[in-house]
Write a protein that binds this DNA or RNA. Structure first.
Lengths: 334, 334
DNA sequence: CTGAAAGCGCTTACAG
DNA sequence: CTGAAAGCGCTTACAG
């Protein structure tokens, strides 16, 4: 079962490779090739089980029909769902996805970007981390098709698709305030990622607009690297001043998981007095015996929009820089 | 910033492309190329920022340095963790991973396999589903490098890396029996996948070896497609005969999640009387206010072994068909 | 030790 | 309407 090439067909039929190539690429009409000839070619191709060699075509055209996906960590539920959505949407366009995880390390993401470019992906979907700004600038300069997802940088222009973190966070805090909470603690990451800072800004502004003062002693920031240890520490400190707070608001589901785990393991907490909220959700929240309010990120839309944006760029239908901001689903607040 | 090719270097240096190619591929010694010449080539390559064109090389050598990963659903926590492990291990070998989800549909997996082969992946890692046996046979015939992971088929020879489902399941049930449980219900998938049937066999044999009779009325099988609805139904039926059972054993974490969700939503359950067990774990289990025993699948090892197996095949160091069976971690039973 | 040349399988500008 | 030929950027068998 040897590979069938264009040459095989052209030889058997006594026509040129050019003609066969045109027919196989559906350009028979455009090139005004005789219908009978075209049909003969198609029939022979089918008979021999011809399939264009992907690598040869990719090499010639420079198109690989593959998208490179750079994310923080595919094993994280948010990203794996995002990856799935991207995979589905890419498939709709006849594209495949090659992926890699950066672990929030810009050296890794830089390397992934380089490798994927080497492999000639037609476009990149990147969930950038701190320090990736250099790589983004480079992509801009090279006019390499890419779109950022979940995060972007104020300092550099980029196509990006994100969630409306500011307003989502604002509404969650507002909801808590409207339910009568007066002291809302906030557990966030200590990083300069725009999605996290926006959630913080939403938190602050919601407080302000209801006349509450921002109290830095009930805001805790933990690092990515030591997330487990530091979240525990943050919770411990918050528990010490527990009469001062009536709500804990987590800026993402991972922090919520760890924070709540801490509370359960040290179960002297009265959940009638201490309420919980989280920016986004996670399956476990549906299992808690304790009420929690949360937003739901439009992950599927996020992935779909990102692919659509990259496709527009690849097909050169893009009308300049594109920013998409999707609303947080806050139906679980009511 | 045009692309630099072998020809550019050879022209500038007045040597042949052959020589440059040999040097760049580290074959200078082997080809006994003059040290000075080799160094000059390397220096010039560095100066010009030369990088071998991936597609041209892949086309010529037939090697793409890419692995195709076909799994059921990347958004599922088990698979996303597996994907991460595979990604890491592949990177160690200088390989990238292109992935796709089959949704337990053999038409989809067949298509993914074809597309990935088209893209000339050097090997496939497949989590096969029912009906994939045809595709496996074809791969065998073509001698295409692949390894099955998590599941395999008794009917066809294959390289595969799986968990010891039988013994893991046996031990979990044994543990329950030793803790005095007498009526252990089992919630499983209604499919012919070997991992699921082995878990069932372990369940039955554990019962038998302790002198208990198998009672089909307390074994429930649900489908992949309607998992949510059917698990709820199964739980409902089990709850009706609740005095007849003192334990519910779920054959995987997804079923456990849904089953426990049902129990919580209908919270008339006395968890002093009804105990819970699951074949594998999920983060939420660490948050339950109710005790549950579970095994832990060696996901990382699973991915690592799968990549190692495929690498051996690619590098033709494979000594025939390879079967790996990894033990379930049952430390959470004690 | 080194080079000229063929070839992988396509696509496409050019010619008629 | 159709074809001969060049070329994408490599690798490698062959020759000297």
């Amino acid at each position: 079962m040897k590979k069938v090439s264009l040459a095989d067909i052209s030889k058997e039929l006594g026509v040129s490779k050019t003609l066969v190539s045109f027919v196989m690429n559906g350009r028979a009409k455009e090139k005004r090739i005789n219908d009978e000839v075209a049909e003969k070619v198609l029939a022979k191709a089918k008979e021999l089980g011809y399939k264009a060699d992907y690598l040869a075509r990719a090499m010639r055209t420079g198109k690989s029909q593959t998208i490179g996906l750079v994310m923080a960590d595919i094993s994280n539920t948010f990203f794996s769902k995002l990856a799935r959505s991207i995979e589905n949407e890419a498939a709709e366009h006849g594209y495949n996805v090659i992926f890699g995880s950066s672990d929030e390390n810009h050296r890794k993401s830089g390397k992934l970007i380089d490798v994927f470019k080497d492999k000639r992906v037609d476009g990149l979907i990147i969930c950038p981390t701190i320090g990736d700004i250099t790589h983004i600038k480079k992509l801009n300069k090279e006019r390499y098709p890419y779109v950022l997802v979940d995060r972007y940088f104020n300092e550099v222009s980029s196509n990006h698709v994100v969630v409306d973190n500011y307003n989502g966070s604002f509404k969650i805090v507002e909801d808590q305030i409207q339910m009568g909470r007066k002291r809302i603690a906030f557990v966030n990451f200590n990083v300069e990622l725009i999605n996290m800072t926006e959630r913080f800004n939403g938190y602050i502004d919601a407080l302000k607009s209801y006349g509450y003062k921002y109290d830095s002693s009930i805001v805790k920031n933990v690092s990515f690297k030591n997330i487990e240890k530091e979240t525990y520490l943050a919770m411990k400190e918050l528990m010490k001043i527990t009469p001062k707070i009536d709500t804990i608001y987590f800026s993402n589901n991972r922090l919520a998981f760890l924070g709540i785990k801490y509370l359960f393991e040290n179960n002297t907490i009265n959940f009638k007095k201490l309420k919980l909220a989280s920016f986004d959700n996670y399956e476990f929240m549906h299992l808690l015996q304790v009420p929690i309010k949360f937003g739901v990120q439009p992950i599927e839309e996020l992935g779909k929009s990102a692919v659509d944006s990259i496709m527009k760029q690849i097909n050169e239908e893009s009308g300049g820089v594109e920013h998409v901001k999707l609303p947080l689903d806050i139906s679980f607040l009511n």
